[in-house]
Simulated assay, not measured.
Amino acid sequence: MAHPEETASLSRTPEGHPELKGGKVGVVLANLGTPDATDYWSVRRYLSEFLSDRRVVDYSPWLWQPLLQLVILSRRPFASGKAYRGIWNRERDESPLLTITREQTDKLATELGRLYGDWLEVAFCMRYGNPSTESVLKRLQAQGCERIVFFPLYPQYGSPTTATANDQAFRALMKLKWQPAIRTVPAYFDHPAYLEALSASVREAYAAATSRPEVLVASYHGVPKRFLDEGDPYYCHCRKTTRLLQEQLGLDDDAIVTTFQSKFGPEEWVGPATVEHVAKLARQGVRHIAVVSPAFSADCVETLEEIEEEIRGAFLDAGGETFTYVPCLNARDDHIQALTAIVERELAGWL
C-alpha cells in the first residue's frame, strides 16, 4: 500500500482539472436486498428485479417474463407484502434485513478502523433494491477508494447468491471511466471463526431452552437439483457446513439434519424440504426441535416469517410440542470478529 505522500501527486494537477482522491481501500458488505416498503408496488418492483435475474430463474426470458409480469407479479406481491408487514421494523420503517446489515457494517467499520485507522471506507449494498451496488461503488470511488474488497454475505457459495452479487459489482465497474481494483470474498462456510460463532449461537439457544432439543435442523435456502448437476457447489457447501457444525457441537448423527426451504416453481429441488421434514419428525415422535439457518447472515423474511411461522406451524400441527429457532448470527460480536478476520485475510498485500 502506498504511503499517503506517494499519492499526493494526485493533487498536483493542472488548473481546472477535476478533483481526484485516492489512496484508500473500500470494504463492501453485499446482501440480497429488500423492498423499500410493504405496499403492492414497492414489493412488486423488488420481486420483479429479483425474479428477473437470470442467476435466480434461468428460464428463457421469452417464456418466463410474460408469466412473471402478467401472472406471478399480479398476485405474489400481496402475499409477500403481508409477510413483510408481519416482520417490518416500524420504528425505522424498513425491513429487518436492512436494519441488521447496517448494524453489521457499523460494527465492522469500528473494528477495521481500530486496526487500520482512516485507510478504510466500509459500506454495504443490496443486490436488489437499495442501497444499490452501483451507487455504493461509485460513492466509494468518489471517496478515494482505489481498491475494494467486495464481500457477499453468503457463507456457502451459490450462483443465485454469491455469483449474482459479484455480477452486479462488475456491471457497476463497466460504467466507470476509472475502475478501482476489486477482490471478491470467496465462500467462508469452513472458516474457523464463522463455525465458532455459529456453534456458539446454537449452544446459547440450547442453554436457554426449557428442554434440550432432540434434533437440530440446519435449514438452508433451497436451489433446483439441476444446479448441483451443472456444477454449482452450494448443496455440497451446505452439507459440509452441517458436518462441521456437528463436529463443533459434538452431536450424534441422529441429532442433526440438513434440510432446504423456500422452494419456488415446478422443478425438483434439493431436499429434504424443511417444512415437510419437521412434520415428519413430529409424526415420528420427536417433541422438541431447534432450527438454525447457517446460510443466512442476517434474519430476514425467510427466517422471521417462513421458519418462525410456517415451519414452526408445520411441526406443531403434526404433534410436535416445543420449537426453538436459533437466530441468525446477525450483529453478534463473535460474528463481527469472524467477518473482520475474513476481511483481514482478503486485505493481504493491500494494507
Score class of each variant (00 low, 15 high):
residue 246 Q to A: 12
residue 268 E to Q: 10
residue 253 D to P: 04
residue 261 Q to R: 05
residue 250 G to F: 11
residue 273 A to C: 05
residue 258 T to E: 13
residue 249 L to M: 10
residue 248 Q to S: 06
residue 266 P to I: 00
residue 261 Q to M: 08
residue 256 I to Y: 10
residue 246 Q to P: 10
residue 269 W to K: 02
residue 252 D to N: 14
residue 256 I to W: 10
residue 263 K to D: 10
residue 268 E to R: 09
residue 254 D to M: 15
residue 261 Q to Y: 01
residue 252 D to S: 14
residue 268 E to L: 12
residue 262 S to Y: 04
residue 262 S to W: 07
residue 263 K to H: 11
residue 265 G to N: 00
residue 248 Q to D: 07
residue 273 A to H: 10
residue 250 G to E: 10
residue 274 T to N: 01
residue 253 D to N: 12
residue 248 Q to H: 12
residue 246 Q to S: 11
residue 271 G to V: 06
residue 254 D to K: 13
residue 269 W to Q: 12
residue 250 G to C: 08
residue 273 A to P: 03
residue 266 P to W: 08
residue 254 D to C: 11
residue 252 D to T: 07
residue 245 L to D: 15
residue 260 F to K: 07
residue 274 T to H: 02
residue 255 A to T: 11
residue 267 E to A: 12
residue 271 G to Q: 03
residue 266 P to Q: 03
residue 274 T to C: 07
residue 260 F to R: 08
residue 259 T to E: 03
residue 255 A to S: 11
residue 263 K to V: 14
residue 267 E to M: 11
residue 246 Q to R: 15
residue 265 G to K: 00
residue 263 K to M: 07
residue 265 G to M: 00
residue 252 D to I: 07
residue 255 A to M: 11
residue 245 L to S: 06
residue 260 F to S: 09
residue 271 G to S: 03
residue 252 D to W: 15
residue 272 P to Y: 12
residue 270 V to F: 03
residue 259 T to H: 06
residue 254 D to S: 10
residue 246 Q to Y: 14
residue 252 D to R: 15
residue 248 Q to V: 01
residue 268 E to H: 05
residue 251 L to H: 10
residue 274 T to G: 02
residue 256 I to F: 09
residue 262 S to N: 01
residue 274 T to K: 03
residue 245 L to Q: 14
residue 259 T to L: 08
residue 252 D to Y: 14
residue 269 W to P: 03
residue 249 L to F: 14
residue 265 G to W: 01
residue 256 I to A: 06
residue 255 A to I: 08
residue 247 E to W: 01
residue 263 K to R: 13
residue 268 E to M: 09
residue 251 L to Y: 15
residue 246 Q to F: 14
residue 260 F to D: 09
residue 272 P to T: 12
residue 271 G to M: 04
residue 273 A to L: 13
residue 270 V to G: 04
residue 274 T to F: 09
residue 269 W to C: 07
residue 247 E to A: 05
residue 255 A to G: 09
residue 271 G to L: 05
residue 264 F to G: 04
residue 254 D to R: 15
residue 251 L to D: 06
residue 269 W to Y: 02
residue 265 G to V: 00
residue 268 E to W: 11
residue 269 W to S: 05
residue 249 L to G: 11
residue 260 F to V: 08
residue 263 K to Y: 13
residue 264 F to T: 01
residue 248 Q to L: 00
residue 264 F to N: 02
residue 252 D to L: 11
residue 266 P to M: 01
residue 257 V to M: 06
residue 248 Q to E: 10
residue 260 F to T: 08
residue 259 T to I: 09
residue 254 D to H: 14
residue 269 W to R: 04
residue 247 E to Y: 01
residue 274 T to V: 06
residue 259 T to Y: 05
residue 268 E to G: 02
residue 257 V to Q: 11
